[in-house]
Design a protein around this nucleic acid. Sequence first.
DNA 1: CCCCAGTCCTGCGGGC
DNA 2: TGCCCGCAGGACTGGG
Length: 288
Amino acid sequence: MPELPEVETMRRGAAAVVGGRITAVARVPCPAKPITVRPRIDVFRRRVLGKAVVAVERLGKRVVLRLDSSDAIVIEPRMTGLVLLAHPPDREHLRFCVRFRGVTPRALWYWDRRGLGSVRLFTAGQLDAALGAAVLGPDALNVTLGQLRERMRAVRRAVKVALLDQRILAGVGNLYACEILHVARIHPAQRCHRLTADDWRRLHAALRSVLEEAIRYEGSTLSDGTYRNVLNAPGAYQNHHRVYGRAGEICPTCGGAAICRIVQAQRSTFFCVACQSKRGRRKTNAGR
DNA sequence: CCCCAGTCCTGCGGGC
DNA sequence: TGCCCGCAGGACTGGG
């Protein structure tokens, strides 16, 4: 489930193709239902052949290859997509290939077991319309405390659900939302408009620290083993998860309570009732 | 505004 | 032992 740390790891790896000139693009014949590629492959090919990659960027949970034509190839891995420069986990789920001259490695692959992801070619204008600041919130790694507070405070939803909304903040998914709220000691069902000034400060600090720590470990490879970096090596942050997937285990922070699992917006939320009490952070419980 | 259910998709593991 | 169902959830859509 690539979220910001996994996609950032892909981006850093894929930056090796900057300067390369595209010599071929192709869908890879795959027994499963084909992934979404837009526009049609013949049009896609005509627009990118001979163009050079000038930058590899990340937009939320997407990898963007900027071309010298001002077009951009946008790879969206969704649940099980991988950007690879070598050694795919298997051949049968390879979906798309871009070949280059002038750089090593000579090819970039898109691999996707479940095939929920996509590869799209956008003009600069299309990219702004689809993924510009009016659509996608500020990046979770760069957002300021003030931006975070103002954007999230505008909704009355549970803080965990709001963190997953890419229009409010880009990059956080289910796993890291759980981890961030645990470090921030905020109850995931707490409503955004009820958070205190100190809650916002801790949330902002935890956002940065958890995401940066996860990037240092090259993301999380869960028990299904899907997530890999561009060289097909697993991440290591799963060994440092405090709450995600650990229902019933003792909280590593307080050592005094078991981690609970609840469901919010049809997704699993893991948290510690002791560390992340709704009442515990407040000066007074009057009225509750 | 907010919430929910359904959609896409495959692999895996729990339960019988 | 083998099979089936449910679950995993990111992004999106439509209905209440």
